[in-house]
């Protein structure tokens, strides 16, 4: 974990209000593992005050790639930056998705939840059998699809709520059949809370080992502020930043 001044080398606007940044940050890039995230100071001013957490889409030293949606003031400020601008980046932070040699792994990504799973697929596809279930509201919500199709996945299953691409429906509509036919040992998931809650009800820990990466509001990103707490089924709290962001799916108390 270190605080590095990153240099933006490419800023691209994609469909659906998504953006992609290519940043030279050699020391963070060298250490980043799939599932890690970074805290970015989107402006040198005191307003907004806090850094924002972003998943790492890809890391190929000396670069990391971030992929995000403009949702609020912080991401709007970030989207105004371009080639040659620099950013203070703290990372890599949090735990990661472990490589599981020989295991059949199903990656389940909803919308911008694709970020850590793309990183995982890119790092490990070809070394283990990977399947991906990827869904969003519509075609515009899945701007990375062409790049995902280029990865050596064993299977790719696309869902959209409006039917503009892939099968029409929620990605969880396809889950049971995919689990039955592809027989994954492990699922790794990231996406909206409602999607993860549904996965937690559908996936049985005795059949598959299930891990989910969580999104949270964060103050610091490295464990000191305790602002990103999430409640477990046991009733205790876990910090998403340094105890996560990856947790066993069954460990989290999901909204019903």
């Amino acid at each position: 974990m270190l605080d590095e001044r990153g240099l933006i080398e490419e800023a691209r606007s994609l469909d659906g209000g998504y953006y992609q940044l290519k940043i030279a940050a050699p020391r963070i890039a060298a250490a980043a593992k799939p599932g890690n995230f970074v805290m970015v100071r989107v402006s040198p001013s005191l307003d907004p005050l806090l850094r924002r957490p972003f998943g790492i889409l890809e890391s190929r030293p000396p670069h990391i790639w971030l992929y995000y949606q403009v949702l609020g003031r912080g991401t709007r400020l970030l989207s105004a930056l371009g080639h040659g601008d620099s950013l203070d980046i703290l990372g890599p932070l949090g735990n990661s998705f472990a490589e599981m040699p020989g295991k059949r792994v199903l990656l389940i990504a909803g919308g911008r939840g694709i970020v850590p799973l793309f990183h995982y697929a890119q790092a490990y596809a070809g070394r283990q059998p990977l399947f991906m279930l990827y869904g969003g509201r519509g075609r515009a919500d899945l701007p990375l699809l062409d790049r995902i199709k280029a990865l050596p996945l064993r299977g790719l299953f696309i869902f959209s709520e409006d039917g503009s691409i892939g099968q029409k429906g929620l990605l969880t509509d396809g889950l049971e059949k995919i689990v039955r036919t592809e027989r994954p040992d492990i699922t790794l998931s990231c996406g909206p809370e409602a999607m993860l809650a549904r996965l937690a009800r559908m996936l049985k820990p005795e059949k598959t080992e299930n891990h989910a990466s969580l999104e949270a509001l964060m103050g610091c990103g490295f464990g000191v502020c305790h602002g990103c707490a999430v409640q477990t089924v046991a009733g205790s709290y876990r910090k998403v930043c340094d105890e996560g962001p990856v947790f066993p799916l069954e460990e989290i108390r999901w909204p019903t």
Partner: peptide, 23 residues
Amino acid sequence: RPGNPPPRLHETPAGLLNSIGLA
């Protein structure tokens, strides 16, 4: 101590509201 239920933070202009609850 477990601390308070989330949300525990809310950013304001040049400020931060917290309700961590001394976890």
